[in-house]
Amino acid sequence: MTTARRRPGEFLLSLAAPLVLLATWEWLARADIINPVYWPPPTAVLETARDQIVNGTLVADTRISLFRVLTGFVLGAVPGVVLGLAMGLFWPVRLLLMPIASAVYAVPKIALVPLALITFGLGETSKLFLVAISIVFVVVLSTMGGVLSLDPAYRDVARDFRASRWQVFTTVALPGTLPAIFTGFRLALGFALVVIVGTEFVSPGDGGIGDLIWESWQVLRIRVMFVGLVVTGLMGWGLTAALDLIERLVVPWEARR
């Protein structure tokens, strides 16, 4: 496949802005122009991160959050794809479920936290439920849109070759919808991260990066809080990169940006 080679300078250029920002921040904090208690210099945050890794708490919290995000993601994405395909392919299903999908889609998922706690208690189940419920309809609507926007010419070709309904599904509807499904996944991943960190804020002692951030804020261990923020960012970046990689393998025909 011929993808445009990146010019060597591009990587350096994309690195420049963050480096300048960090350097400025470091200098402002060290010169006491901003309060280093609330805005610790990046090098100090890095040091704290190393301590946290060494004593094992950071790895443990990261692992807990990652597990929740990934499990919740699968729990929401799989039914999301199935429902989305069904709604795209069969209009009665679409009419039946569309009001629910649009309504739940519009609710800020964080607002469901109390409901989840009442229903599933304080443990892991409520957290997984919240991640799953917050992404399922994103995936549903994206998948359904993908099915509906498929060029009818593809289905005509399949039918003209005497494809059975099942063959039309497996050889046309499914592969044709994959790009839209991945668009849904990408959005869903962002939602899942927001919801899991928010949920962990209100679940003291249950671990996870959100718990780490909230707890360290409450006891004013600001450096640890910053470590939590950095890890959250890295987690989002890593998960998105992983999803991109999977997409490239599963949807090799799409133009990559």
Binding site: D151, A153, D156, V157, T171, V172, P175, G176
Partner: peptide, 21 residues
Amino acid sequence: AMVPQGRSVFPWLTARDNVAY
């Protein structure tokens, strides 16, 4: 066998797999 316009060629299959469809 219908021969529709070129846009009916399946984007998710290579030229070879399209012909072999």
